[in-house]
Design a binder for these strands. Structure first.
Lengths: 237, 237
DNA sequence: CGACATGTTGAATGTCCTCAAGGTCCGTGG
DNA sequence: CCACGGACCTTGAGGACATTCAACATGTCG
């Protein structure tokens, strides 16, 4: 095993060097479309980690000089506000990338925290840029990741940060329902809902309780279920 | 003069093909750092426009398949909400780029409207990508434009869309003060302030009036001036 | 000067926040 | 097995704040 970029192998979450050419979700990942021949050799500096829920992967201000891509699970992108409140800026799911700021030599501006168990690959920015200059389609893939981030930021501003509390929560629940293509929508805590919607925990709790009472929402164990039709009607108002 | 991409020359705002190698603000533009030899030949399909305030350059959903770069003035990125309200997502200033979505073949998701008089270049996505594949530094420049957009979206969520009305307005005014490096900070209308901060026009008016009464803000003609120190103190709370 | 967009002001209403007190769930250790 | 602690959630009462609706003022441009 190499040292250098492998210094992290004391990291308890470190899994090893991923086998990118057999990655189960490669089609949705950054390296989709690249010829396999290049992958094995050039992606040697890539590391793979598996984290339990609630682990901070990167802290705001750190410069890991690497892009993280998410193979499985959900991540929270969060930041402390000046007044000390923890705000959630967006959620990442399988196929998304984080810390694209490394590509332009900027420290990561947010905290990156696992929401569920998560399987993450760490690609040094230098590796990525080197590979991209040989394979321009990789640049396109990176532009697409930027676009997704911005799209979600814009949707958050328009849908989740305006309107009344009940509407915001309804929109968030519909969003989570879409967001989890495979049906396993992440069960957010009240704190995280509140942090994403800029509401207090108390208001969030009150509204959720009312949704449950009215049969729009079911919380069983760590599963969420919604009455999609009625929830959308509430979200739309 | 060519036809094809020059079909727009009936556009009253069309100025002509820009002379990129002598662009006064080239250092801050996308093509900073490219060898001049390439520019003249390859940037032939680029068009230059000059718009008065209040002109819609691109409508949400259109696919101009081009990236717009702003040489002078300010642009509003706005969108109609489901409830019919006009919301402002961000402001662009000289050096920024819009419609980067064209790079990944997506229609532009927002309206793009001039706030002040503006000088805009229109670069077909194909031209840009072709050039970028020869000159990887151009990809970096595009990554940087994406980053700026996302950074501003994040700051908007944290600073402009939370807290009390007076704080939001104070933060916006400080932001505008930074934003306009050359001192010519764009004089937003009440409607635009309200649309950016998700407040009503009435609330915005009331708060601004109070700021003026307290001497934190001066509105003279189309100039704004703020008492930076006291405004920051208000913004921080 | 007149017309129309933009900005201002007031009073009443509703929503969300604050503060405070309890409740539930779950893992740990006696 | 049960008691305990801690994290998370729930509920209530009171008050602060932005919104709504309506009327009026100001400014700007022909």
């Amino acid at each position: 095993m190499k040292t250098g970029s492998r210094a992290l192998c004391t990291d308890p979450y470190w899994v090893g060097r991923p086998d990118c050419s057999h990655c189960a979700v490669r089609k949705s990942m950054l390296f989709a479309g690249l010829p396999e021949a290049d992958l094995d050799h050039l992606l040697r500096p890539v590391d793979n980690f598996r984290y339990p829920p609630g682990v901070t992967i990167v802290r705001a201000g750190e410069s890991p000089r690497a892009v993280y891509t998410l193979r499985r699970g959900y991540l929270k992108v969060q930041q402390l506000q000046a007044d000390g409140k923890r705000r959630l800026l967006r959620l990442l799911r399988a196929g998304d990338a984080a810390d694209l700021e490394s590509l332009v030599d900027r420290p990561y501006p947010h905290d990156l925290v696992t929401l569920t168990e998560a399987d993450v690959c760490r690609v040094p920015a230098q590796t990525l840029m080197g590979l991209a200059n040989k394979h321009p389609e990789l640049h396109i893939a990176m532009h697409e990741r930027w676009r997704r981030g911005l799209e979600q930021a814009d949707r958050t501003m328009l849908d989740l940060l305006s309107g009344e509390a009940a509407q915001r929560i309804a929109r968030l629940l519909c969003f989570l329902d879409d967001f989890a293509e495979d049906g396993a929508l992440p069960r957010l805590r009240r704190t995280d809902m509140a942090g994403l919607l800029d509401l207090t925990i108390e208001t969030t709790s009150r509204v959720c309780r009312r949704l449950i009472a009215d049969g729009l929402l079911t919380e069983s164990g760590r599963q969420l279920r919604i009455d999609r039709r009625r929830m959308e009607a509430l979200a739309a108002r």
